[in-house]
Design a protein around this nucleic acid. Structure first.
Lengths: 203, 203
DNA sequence: CCCGTTTTGTAGGGATCGCTACGGAAATAA
DNA sequence: TTATTTCCGTAGCGATCCCTACAAAACGGG
């Protein structure tokens, strides 16, 4: 009785964090249950009792990542900075997020499930949705820039959104290929150098 | 006697092309031997006799891809165009390469082996080397631009190279997320809008 | 026609995959 | 202490992984 809400014998949050790091480094398909249980310090039955399945564990890990390691990236869009400074800050935050010490290089949302067999489709779709959501937030910030008079009405929001989303996505692969923080920061700065032309209706 | 150089009973080149498409769509780890042999129209023993192992088949498939579907991307750097036009043409070629009809979206070199367990390390490293080679070619083209007087001496070649490499890499994820050709073309154009500032020593 | 060589197809080996049934330990209450 | 409940660790499920041993079929020369 009352066993449902009873606290488990192990630290669920800590175990989830460990699982996140394994998924982050290996990807959904590449992370085996053996490696996950080993890193989490629990046995398979405990994992399934607490998280249901590998897929649900993955989704929870993605949620944790978005709320912690990748949290600052999108929050940069919600402050009082100008539109331009917001985007620049987002790019820099993304670069930093790709290069956390003692963590896998690159963004989990970008690299966590890029390919695989049919059993990975759900994980891929889930990450794809997350990335689409990221794009929607960038677009919303740009739209606010138009409303605030910082950007011209009639600006092609889809194009500008796709450009900055592409830069962020590319940084993750660049990071996993071994780029250092200075390199990624240079990419972020370079991507902003065409701001005036990019956010023009002439483009 | 003379069996070594004897032509095999099936079309090796056609089978390799089919294998390339499976690897391209599924990634190294996600492509099972069952799916590969099915697509290639041969049985496992024939595959191993002709290609040696899954890993060697993958490397041959990557080589074929680089020589065909992705061939035009880097050849854009070797023509008579100005440095600026060469880079712009490369970006557009890359966008087109990510959106070939009846082929998987995104570049095989970017998405073919992003993550996985230890058994995928060799494939990952192989693709990473290919990407590094791509960066080296971009850098060489920029260096030629300096030699030709089109770009300023003292330009930070590493930064500019990393920027354009990042855009190309990002386009592949963008493509796999469902972007259309118009979107990728807009990204390519946007990425060039800051050219003068990006290729300045002041940046 | 028969034989020797090559290629193909079947069937399966050894390992690992995600996942779960079950028996014993620990904890709680009387 | 005993009875009962809750949890955990071992062991193993069926399926699939990459790869290969073996035998039947196809080919070419006498």
């Amino acid at each position: 009785m009352g066993a449902r809400g009873r606290p488990r014998g192990f630290d669920r949050a800590a175990a989830l964090e460990k699982a996140m790091e394994v998924f982050w480094a290996r990807g959904y398909a590449g992370a085996s249950m053996a490696e996950l249980t080993e890193a989490m310090g629990i046995n398979p039955p405990s994992l399934y009792a607490a998280f249901g399945s590998k897929e649900e564990l993955f989704k929870e890990a993605v949620g944790l990542y978005a709320a912690t390691d990748d949290g600052c990236t999108l929050t940069m869009l919600e402050g009082d900075l100008s539109t331009r400074d917001s985007i620049a800050a987002m790019l820099m935050a993304s670069a930093r997020s790709c290069m956390r010490p003692d963590k896998p290089s690159g963004c989990f949302l970008m690299l966590g499930a890029t390919n695989g067999g049919p059993e990975t489709d759900a994980a891929q779709a889930y990450l794809c949705d997350r990335r689409r959501d990221m794009g929607a937030r960038i677009r919303a910030r740009l739209a606010r820039g138009i409303a605030d008079g910082e950007l011209p009405p009639g600006l092609d929001l889809d194009r500008v959104t796709a450009y900055f989303a592409t830069v962020i996505k590319g940084m993750s692969i660049e990071a996993r290929d071994g780029a250092d923080m200075e390199t990624l920061a240079g990419v972020a700065r370079s991507a902003m150098l065409g701001w005036d032309a990019i956010t023009s209706t002439q483009a």
